[in-house]
Amino acid sequence: MATTETMVQLARISDQPLDPAEVEAAVTGPHYGATVVFTGKVRDHDGGQAVSALEYSAHPQAERFLRTVCAELATAHGLPVAAVHRVGALTIGDYAIVVAVSAAHRAEAFAACAELVDRIKHEVPIWKRQVFADGLSEWVNACG
Score class of each variant (00 low, 15 high):
residue 3 T to D: 13
residue 3 T to Q: 12
residue 6 T to C: 08
residue 9 Q to G: 15
residue 13 I to R: 01
residue 14 S to E: 07
residue 17 P to D: 07
residue 19 D to W: 02
residue 19 D to V: 12
residue 20 P to M: 07
residue 20 P to W: 04
residue 23 V to K: 03
residue 24 E to V: 10
residue 25 A to N: 11
residue 27 V to D: 06
residue 28 T to G: 08
residue 29 G to Y: 02
residue 30 P to Q: 11
residue 31 H to T: 12
residue 31 H to P: 10
residue 35 T to F: 06
residue 36 V to F: 03
residue 37 V to W: 00
residue 39 T to S: 15
residue 40 G to C: 06
residue 44 D to S: 13
residue 44 D to K: 03
residue 46 D to G: 14
residue 46 D to P: 08
residue 46 D to R: 14
residue 47 G to S: 11
residue 48 G to C: 08
residue 50 A to W: 09
residue 50 A to Y: 09
residue 50 A to F: 08
residue 52 S to V: 12
residue 55 E to K: 14
residue 58 A to T: 07
residue 60 P to T: 09
residue 61 Q to I: 09
residue 61 Q to E: 15
residue 62 A to R: 02
residue 65 F to T: 14
residue 66 L to K: 02
residue 67 R to P: 03
residue 67 R to F: 07
residue 68 T to C: 11
residue 68 T to P: 05
residue 69 V to E: 02
residue 72 E to Y: 03
residue 72 E to K: 10
residue 76 A to G: 14
residue 77 H to Y: 15
residue 78 G to N: 10
residue 78 G to Q: 11
residue 80 P to T: 05
residue 80 P to G: 06
residue 82 A to T: 04
residue 83 A to F: 01
residue 86 R to T: 05
residue 91 T to G: 13
residue 98 V to A: 02
residue 99 V to N: 01
residue 103 A to Q: 05
residue 104 A to F: 04
residue 107 A to V: 12
residue 108 E to L: 10
residue 109 A to M: 00
residue 109 A to G: 08
residue 110 F to Q: 00
residue 110 F to A: 03
residue 110 F to T: 00
residue 113 C to R: 00
residue 113 C to Q: 03
residue 113 C to A: 14
residue 117 V to F: 00
residue 118 D to Y: 02
residue 122 H to R: 14
residue 123 E to S: 03
residue 124 V to G: 05
residue 130 Q to K: 11
residue 131 V to L: 13
residue 132 F to K: 01
residue 133 A to I: 08
residue 134 D to S: 09
residue 134 D to Y: 03
residue 134 D to E: 07
residue 135 G to M: 07
residue 136 L to D: 13
residue 139 W to I: 08
residue 141 N to E: 15
residue 141 N to W: 12
residue 144 G to H: 04
